[in-house]
Simulated assay, not measured.
Amino acid sequence: MTGKTHLMGGIATATVVATYTEYDPVLFIAAGAIGGLIPDICHGGSKIGRRFPLLSKIINSIFGHRTFTHSLLFIVVMRFVLTMFITNQSIIMGVLAGMVSHFVLDAMTKNGIKLFYPVNITVRFPVTTRTGGAVEHVVLLVLTIVTIYYGKDIISTPLF
């Protein structure tokens, strides 16, 4: 999937979860957007890879693409790292929710992901799509509609 779809996936996932939890919706959704992009740090051409090219190059040279940064192990590592520096659970859990959305979206592609890294098993949906294809545009549209549908409840709720 492309960066815009991952970004919207993180936002949509966080918006839905924020509707049913007590997390600060603004922080949770913003963190979800970031989390939706983080796993692609292993790809130099990604939105986040272009932002942090040296880190991206190092991670890619060690692990390759869609391996460690697309795994359950990475979720555990990120949870640990985030709790070392951030105390706000809305931010921590928002980032993790966005990362999970990224995994689901990439599992919809033909290449899939190494969800159980370092075990070399590729996880993908039975029916897959091509990155940047027409189906991805439909997925992006659905994610946008989901965000609007659930976001209306958040907007109507007083924040203070």
Score class of each variant (00 low, 15 high):
L55E: 09
I62Y: 09
F28G: 02
K152E: 12
C42W: 03
G35S: 03
T147K: 03
A31W: 00
H137E: 14
Y20C: 09
V76R: 04
H65I: 11
S90L: 01
F63P: 01
I148R: 08
R66P: 04
T131M: 08
G112S: 12
V142M: 09
V123S: 06
A30F: 14
G64M: 10
G10C: 08
G151A: 08
N60I: 06
H102C: 03
R50I: 11
L55N: 10
V135H: 02
Y149A: 10
I148P: 04
T67M: 10
A97M: 09
M108Q: 00
F103Q: 06
V127R: 13
H70S: 10
F85L: 15
K47E: 13
V104I: 15
I38W: 01
R51T: 12
H102R: 01
P158S: 12
L82D: 04
L54R: 14
G151L: 07
T144H: 08
F52K: 09
V139Y: 10
R124Y: 11
T109P: 04
I41T: 08
V26E: 12
V123G: 04
R130Y: 11
R51V: 09
I34A: 13
I41L: 14
V123H: 01
G133Q: 00
G94F: 08
R66T: 04
L141T: 15
F28R: 03
G49I: 11
T147W: 05
A18M: 02
H70P: 05
L115D: 00
I113Y: 03
G3M: 01
M1K: 00
F80A: 13
Y23D: 03
T144L: 13
Y149V: 13
V17D: 00
A31C: 03
I38K: 00
P53D: 14
I75L: 15
I11V: 15
V17E: 07
T21Y: 03
V142N: 02
Y149Q: 03
R79I: 10
F116Y: 11
P158D: 11
L143A: 06
D40F: 04
L54T: 15
I38G: 01
T69Y: 07
G36Q: 05
I91E: 00
G64L: 08
I59F: 11
Y23P: 04
L143R: 07
F116N: 01
V100I: 15
T144Q: 06
I154W: 06
C42T: 14
G112W: 10
D106F: 05
G94S: 07
T83W: 08
I155Y: 13
L82T: 09
L105H: 08
I113M: 00
F68M: 13
T144P: 01
L82C: 07
A30H: 05
G44F: 09
D106L: 00
V135K: 10
S61H: 14
T122R: 09
T69C: 00
F74T: 03
I92F: 05
V26H: 02
T15H: 01
M8C: 07
I29G: 02
V123L: 06
V119R: 09
D106Y: 04
F125T: 15
T2F: 12
R79P: 05
R130G: 06
